[in-house]
Lab assay of single mutants.
Amino acid sequence: TYYTVKSGDTANKIAAQYGVSVANLRSWNGISGDLIFVGQKLIVKKG
């Protein structure tokens, strides 16, 4: 599943929404920190 980042989103918020850990969200998308951008497409695997 892909999720498009919206204004006000955070890695924590997206992870919680899908029931996954922030560490997994980072791993699936090659993100090292919490910096995400509006319009960015993230791979999300439901927990």
Rank of each mutant, 00 (worst) to 15 (best):
T1H: 13
T1Y: 14
T1L: 14
T1K: 11
T1C: 15
T1A: 11
Y2M: 09
Y2W: 14
Y2H: 09
Y2G: 04
Y3Q: 02
Y3R: 01
Y3I: 08
Y3W: 03
Y3L: 04
T4H: 08
T4K: 07
T4V: 14
T4E: 11
T4M: 08
V5I: 05
V5Q: 00
V5A: 07
V5T: 05
V5D: 02
K6E: 09
K6G: 07
K6L: 09
K6Y: 04
K6T: 08
K6P: 02
K6F: 04
K6A: 09
K6V: 12
S7N: 12
S7V: 15
S7P: 15
S7G: 09
S7W: 13
G8K: 05
G8V: 03
G8M: 05
G8R: 03
G8C: 05
G8F: 05
G8A: 05
G8L: 04
D9V: 02
D9M: 01
D9P: 00
T10Y: 03
T10V: 05
T10E: 05
T10L: 04
T10G: 02
T10I: 04
T10S: 08
A11N: 04
A11C: 14
A11M: 15
A11E: 09
A11F: 15
A11P: 15
N12T: 14
N12Y: 14
N12A: 15
N12D: 15
N12P: 11
N12S: 15
N12M: 15
K13E: 10
K13V: 08
K13H: 09
K13T: 14
K13W: 12
I14P: 00
I14N: 00
I14Y: 00
A15S: 07
A15L: 03
A16N: 11
A16H: 11
A16P: 01
A16L: 12
A16V: 10
Q17H: 10
Q17W: 12
Q17P: 00
Q17L: 14
Q17R: 12
Y18Q: 07
Y18G: 02
Y18V: 08
Y18N: 08
Y18R: 03
Y18T: 07
G19D: 09
G19M: 07
G19L: 06
G19I: 04
V20Y: 02
V20W: 02
V20N: 01
V20C: 09
V20P: 01
S21W: 03
S21Y: 03
S21R: 04
V22K: 05
V22G: 04
V22E: 10
V22Y: 03
A23S: 10
A23P: 06
A23W: 06
A23N: 09
N24G: 05
L25E: 01
L25R: 00
L25N: 00
R26L: 15
R26W: 08
R26F: 14
R26K: 13
R26I: 14
R26E: 15
R26H: 09
S27W: 10
S27H: 12
W28D: 04
W28I: 05
W28Q: 03
W28E: 03
W28S: 03
W28P: 01
W28H: 02
N29H: 01
N29S: 02
N29R: 00
N29W: 03
G30E: 11
G30D: 12
I31T: 05
I31V: 07
I31P: 04
I31N: 05
I31G: 05
I31D: 05
S32A: 12
S32D: 14
S32E: 15
S32Q: 14
S32C: 12
S32T: 14
G33R: 06
G33N: 11
G33F: 09
G33H: 08
D34P: 06
D34C: 10
D34A: 07
D34R: 06
D34H: 08
L35Y: 12
L35T: 13
L35A: 13
L35C: 14
L35K: 13
I36R: 00
I36G: 02
I36T: 04
F37P: 08
F37L: 09
F37Y: 13
F37W: 11
F37V: 11
V38T: 08
V38H: 06
V38G: 04
V38E: 10
V38S: 06
V38C: 07
V38L: 08
V38D: 06
G39A: 03
G39E: 03
G39H: 04
G39Q: 02
K41V: 15
K41F: 07
K41Y: 07
K41P: 05
K41T: 12
K41N: 09
K41Q: 12
L42V: 06
L42S: 01
L42E: 01
L42A: 01
L42C: 02
L42W: 01
L42R: 00
L42M: 06
L42F: 02
L42I: 09
I43K: 07
I43Y: 08
I43L: 15
V44H: 00
V44Q: 01
V44G: 01
K45P: 07
K45L: 12
K45I: 11
K45G: 13
K45S: 14
K46G: 13
K46Y: 13
K46L: 15
K46D: 12
G47Y: 11
G47D: 13
